[in-house]
Design a protein around this nucleic acid. Sequence first.
DNA 1: TATAAAATACCGACCAGTTGGTATGTTATG
DNA 2: CATAACATACCAACTGGTCGGTATTTTATA
Lengths: 206, 206
Amino acid sequence: MSKQTTSSTRERILYVARDLILSRGFSAMSVDMVCAQADITKGGFFHHFPNKEALGEAVLRQFWQDAANRQEDILHRHYPAQLDKICAYLDHAMTTYQDPQLSQGCMLAIFTMGLADTNPDLYAVSRSYFSQWRHDLISMFEQLKTEQALTSLDATAWSELYIAMLEGALILAKSSHDPHVIARTLTLYKQQLQLLVSQPDTSAKP
Amino acid sequence: MSKQTTSSTRERILYVARDLILSRGFSAMSVDMVCAQADITKGGFFHHFPNKEALGEAVLRQFWQDAANRQEDILHRHYPAQLDKICAYLDHAMTTYQDPQLSQGCMLAIFTMGLADTNPDLYAVSRSYFSQWRHDLISMFEQLKTEQALTSLDATAWSELYIAMLEGALILAKSSHDPHVIARTLTLYKQQLQLLVSQPDTSAKP
DNA sequence: TATAAAATACCGACCAGTTGGTATGTTATG
DNA sequence: CATAACATACCAACTGGTCGGTATTTTATA
């Protein structure tokens, strides 16, 4: 409608910055490098962004939005059983993280680890995204728990394990140059979840 | 023996650098900051280390060595059953990562994510450590597999899942200021492993 | 619809401070 | 007195950011 004219220069800056942050971190990315790779001058850059931090926030926001858009259809579709929904979610992640671009790393992790003690504002943003992600997962698992009457299922632990596993798998993938790590860990996670659900509940039986 | 005189200044530098790298990353740590916090001047620093990269390598090496020393007794002690050994390993990690100093982050992850595209040498070092860690875990799980005849146990996947989970949990812990994340994910991991082992093997039964 | 006004999108020079690193000292110690 | 262990002064390159200026495009107006 109104804000149709998203300057292609701004998009170029965003793209270049995304790449640089994923491969070196936010602090190690200089605006000079961004300008050079986006084929723009300093003056041009600071027309689009008031400062480096604003660029970081924009990149982080877009990273989060892209991920949200990718999951949208799965999260909003109705499934006969909640386990199917979760499995669809896991399968979606598995195919998604085949993309070498996505297996480069996670923006939330980079901002969290690199800026926790130096940039409270950017850190708070990534923190809120992590928190949101966690809560979304917890509600998914809580639903599974009530639906299947799985008293032994710890929704929080399973949610945190998923995020932790994914973030760690991205690190391992970068270390071993093998994107398959992500698929392997995700597969095991899914198998174990299915095993737990199929399992007769062994906890406190009155 | 011979190298007994480890200059206390050098140790101070190492300690300060460790802290700075864990909280900001390697690139964002300047030698000026190291000098200031270690109460030393530039000249003094470059007497102990030829360059910043050498400091990074020393910090990384010590980080790895410290971790190895902590696990030594568990890895070399004999256990009646391999599952006990692995559980002891997991319990050890659980208590170890209560320490706020250790829950600050992992040096291997920082070097891997931050230097993969900019510092091949340091990246290769952290890479080799990760690889060694992975292989040690795989052999532990392989032993469990043969001992219990668990044809369905994927030693590689379980090993990778462990490292990924731990690295990711460190990120989540830093994001949520809650070191309990590590304990929760580790507990779930252990429970699921025990569940798999206790489970009658549901795979191909001829 | 021609034109004035104003906003947008950029450039290139410049700034103070920081970067990793060096060259040349000085001081303590064995 | 030779070597280790520092300090001081300095450097070129780079850091995020500012500033004045200029095409180009959009919008308001007569």
